[in-house]
Design a protein around this nucleic acid. Structure first.
Lengths: 114, 114
DNA sequence: AAAGCCCACAACCATCAGGTTGTATGGTTG
DNA sequence: CAACCATACAACCTGATGGTTGTGGGCTTT
């Protein structure tokens, strides 16, 4: 399924919103931690060396977008991956970045040899 | 190829930068117009109902990231898609958004019937 | 019931990036 | 050479957003 052309303004807005969701390092790092299974807010905050409030805020954003799921147990809340498709996209971009850096490394090597 | 876990801060920064590149409606719309072939800056500006300066600025951003290519002919500059992989990602997210809205439509219908 | 823990909400600040306006640069045309 | 055109550059304003701080609200434990 492809994008309709010309891309309507409101659809562009929706798509860009999805990309912006993944356009913050902290959110990517949160999602990364969730790959190994569900985690509590405090657990994430500690592991990511951030504040509970900040992590909670980002989790709200991710949750509102359907990127993560919630499970409440006692007074702790566990979050987990809610959209495997988004994770696949992260992998895809990560691979792209690594390829790009691979090419950069080759260029640097060729310069070094000259 | 998957993301390394735990995701290093600098890699998270690089990946998020890629997502942010596509996180602006105007850039998505520019890329969309380029799907049908190379376009000049003024051409794009007119079609997108924006200013030449604004479109040019976004094109610089896209170019710096390798998302588009430049070709100069006389005193006009033609831009074209530089990274088909990014376009595939746009399609992917667009499809995801449409699926999501499809589900929303279903829910709304079920509510309406109740 | 009192204290403590975990999380969410709200207000604030600082930063960043998109849009606009004005202008410079480089190439073409008369 | 002068006028003109297309593009790029720079300065500015403003809205959006990430991070911090303070606090409130559940739930658990003793």
């Amino acid at each position: 399924m492809a994008m309709p052309s010309p891309l309507p303004d409101d659809l562009a807005e929706l798509i860009s919103r999805q990309f912006r969701l993944l356009g913050e390092p902290m959110r990517l790092r949160i999602l990364d931690r969730l790959r190994s299974g569900e985690r509590s807010v405090g657990d994430l905050a500690e592991g990511l060396d951030s504040t509970q409030q900040n992590v909670s805020k980002h989790l709200q954003t991710l949750y509102a977008a359907g990127a993560v799921e919630r499970r409440k147990d006692g007074n702790t809340v566990f979050y987990s991956i809610g959209d495997p498709e988004l994770m696949a996209m992260c992998d895809q971009v990560c691979a792209s970045v690594e390829r790009r850096f691979g090419r950069m490394a080759e260029v640097l090597d060729s310069i070094k040899q000259a």
